[in-house]
Design a protein around this nucleic acid. Structure first.
Length: 581
RNA sequence: GUUCUAGUAGCUCAGUCGGAUAGAGCGAUAGCCUCCUAAGCUGUAGGUCGGAGGUUCAAUUCCUCUCUAGAACGCCA
């Protein structure tokens, strides 16, 4: 479906052409001066340069060929050469009807593309903490945005389950529980049992072992050794590893469930293991792999690099794999399973060099077609008021489950709650507060986390949006069912209603932009604006008491449309709607 | 040291393929509930868009330099 911007741009382009100005001068944008007009075209400035004519004159010519077109309420030239456009109400209503009769509300559906989205990236044996929050929230939203545009989107958690952290945990276990059978060479997985682990111990071991390895060189070596052995399927370590994974995944899933974050696949680095031999083979066949300082590496420099991009390490000098190895092997795996048009990595921006190397290597080795878009949808960090990654008051890292608990508790304490909100609604409000508060910031930027701002019931928040939704639901519930069924847009009665319609018919532009830039904040902004417009509309008009039946039916229809648009955007952000609050 | 990213209202952030008077939330301040949920609505104040040059009819947006902060820079992920 063509958007209003497309239609206007086409009309303006034709008008420029009719007046013998060749070139795409007709681009129409949403007005930067809503007090003057709804849409604007600045093409006469560009044309003026090429045709050496005053922009005002060109604009006048263009406008004169369009002035009688019925879709315009008015189209006129302003000062140096702006073309200001307002659409007639009849045409706005016609477009809106077209948009609302489409189940996707005018959002262009591209059904022949697949995007794999890699988010989560958590390490097993390590509790989820606040550092995992952004990638989970942003990734989930990007997946849903892709789906909203008709694409197939595959979400993969890509667990860190096959690297040094595993070696560290097991190394620590060998010291704490030296008697465990799995540490002996005689361990037989068919006969011997693995000790039962509990998740709290597991969560405590990793930070402990990690700290220990930074202070104790021998321990570090031991962990590296165990990692290498594990990767070679040492029976005891491998069996223990399987147990760790099992326990850890259950715990992780709990946290992700609370955030309403769902993965289609719980693959990890380990699952790419089968593709490592193929990776090595391909790299060798292409003569890319060579030995350097004992490690096996691939050059990924390009001619116009400003700075030396170091080679990518495929095999460490002790023959162990690193994350570049598993990331590349995973690309082979994903290409085999999904033939994606794009793979998006929602990972901390500090890893951009790594992904640059991996992508170059993948393209160089032909692991994916040249057309496959490998994108590092980098996310910023959540910082404290000191501008450094967020820490608790005690200086530790806040666990995700603790974080969610705090937000729920604060929301529950809101005085408006006592009468209205049950526990389940508070949970939804808390998650909405967290997600909206995160997504409203641009994906790639760090932001300063302020617990009061997140939990505030006021202002530009998830709670505000859900509150507006609850009001809409309440009105609809109180109306006669017959009226709701017969609701229909007869007319536009106010500027606010006009603005609401303009907002709704531009949903496609918002979704397209969000998809193209992997940036959910545009949807957040649009959603908030629509909610504000509804609120204004709500205060200006009393829908239930309205006596003019045509007016009332128009207003009811408008509310139904707003609700649908809001639900669509909430879905794309991964925020659950509430019926009431 | 090199490279990258950022610097916009008191605070937290949007915006920018160059366009007309730079936006929002919080905070400050003045109002609005006999009426569909006041977790709401309306108004006011608050800015030389880090600084200096340049390109342009037009620069917060592009280029150069500079200051400040953060990040990355081969065997962790």
């Amino acid at each position: 479906m063509k958007t209003i911007i497309d239609i206007l741009t086409a009309k303006l382009n034709d008008a420029f052409k009719t007046n013998n100005y060749e070139g795409p001068f007709g681009t129409v944008n949403i007005s930067s001066r809503p007090d003057l007009c709804q849409f604007q075209c600045n093409g006469s400035f560009a044309a003026a340069k090429i045709y050496k004519k005053a922009p005002f004159v060109i604009a006048e010519e263009v406008v004169s060929t369009l002035v009688n077109d019925a879709i315009f309420k008015n189209i006129q030239v302003e000062k140096p050469g702006f073309i200001n456009i307002n659409i007639s109400d009849d045409y706005l209503i016609a477009i809106l009807k077209e948009v609302t009769s489409d189940p996707h509300m005018g959002i262009t559906q591209i059904t022949d593309e697949t995007i794999v989205i890699d988010y989560g990236g958590a390490n097993v044996a390590k509790p989820l903490h606040i550092g995992h929050l952004r990638t989970a929230i942003i990734g989930e939203s990007l997946k849903r945005i892709a789906r909203s545009t008709g694409r197939t989107a595959v979400g993969d958690v890509h667990l860190g389950d096959w690297g040094l952290p595993m070696g560290l945990v097991i190394a620590e276990m060998t010291e704490r529980y030296p008697d465990w059978k799995c540490f002996s060479e005689s361990f037989d997985p068919n006969v011997d049992k693995i000790a039962t682990l509990d998740v709290n111990t597991l969560n405590e071991i990793y930070p402990f072992a990690s700290k220990k390895s930074s202070q104790n060189e021998d321990f570090k070596l031991k962990a590296q050794n165990i990692t290498a052995k594990l990767q070679n399927h040492h029976p005891g370590y491998y069996a223990l590893w399987q147990e760790i994974i099992k326990i850890s995944k259950i715990d992780m899933k709990k946290s992700y469930d609370r955030l309403n974050v769902e993965f289609d696949y719980w693959y990890g680095e380990y699952d790419s293991e089968d593709y490592i031999p193929e990776l090595i083979e391909v790299l060798n066949d292409n003569n890319l792999l060579y030995e350097s300082n004992g490690a096996m590496v691939v050059d990924v420099k390009e001619d116009n690099d400003k700075v030396d991009i170091p080679p990518i390490i495929i095999k460490k000098s002790n023959n162990a794999n690193v994350y570049a190895t598993t990331d590349l092997a995973t690309i082979i795996q994903r290409e085999k399973y999904f033939h994606p048009n794009g793979i998006w990595y929602v990972v901390d921006s500090r890893q951009s060099l790594h992904f640059n190397q991996v992508f170059r290597c993948a393209k160089k080795a032909g692991l994916v077609p040249q057309t496959t878009k490998l994108i590092h949808a980098a996310n910023g960090t959540i910082n404290g008021s000191d501008g450094k990654p967020y820490k608790t008051r005690e200086g530790g890292i806040m666990q995700l489950s603790t974080f969610i608990d705090i937000i729920i508790e604060t929301i529950s304490k809101n005085p408006n709650n006592e009468i209205n909100c049950d526990n389940d609604i508070n949970k939804k409000l808390a998650i909405a507060a967290i997600k909206f508060g995160d997504l409203i910031n641009h994906r790639s930027k760090d932001y300063i986390f302020d617990i009061d701002k997140f939990t505030s019931p006021e202002g530009k928040t998830g709670v505000y949006i859900l509150y507006m939704l609850a009001r809409m639901n309440s009105i609809i519930k109180k109306l006669d069912e017959e009226k709701v069924n017969n609701a229909m847009l007869y007319n536009i009665y106010s500027d606010t209603e006009r603005d609401i319609i303009l907002n709704v018919i531009q949903l496609n532009d918002v979704f397209t932009k969000s998809f193209n830039e992997q940036a959910p904040n545009y949807i957040c902004e649009n959603l908030y604006q629509l909610s504000v417009l509804f609120s204004k509309f709500y205060h200006d008009n009393h829908i239930i008491k309205e006596a003019d039946i045509q007016k009332q039916l128009s207003w009811i229809k408008l509310i139904l449309i707003i609700r649908e648009a809001i639900l669509k955007q909430l879905y794309a952000l991964g925020i659950e709607a509430v019926e009431a609050m």
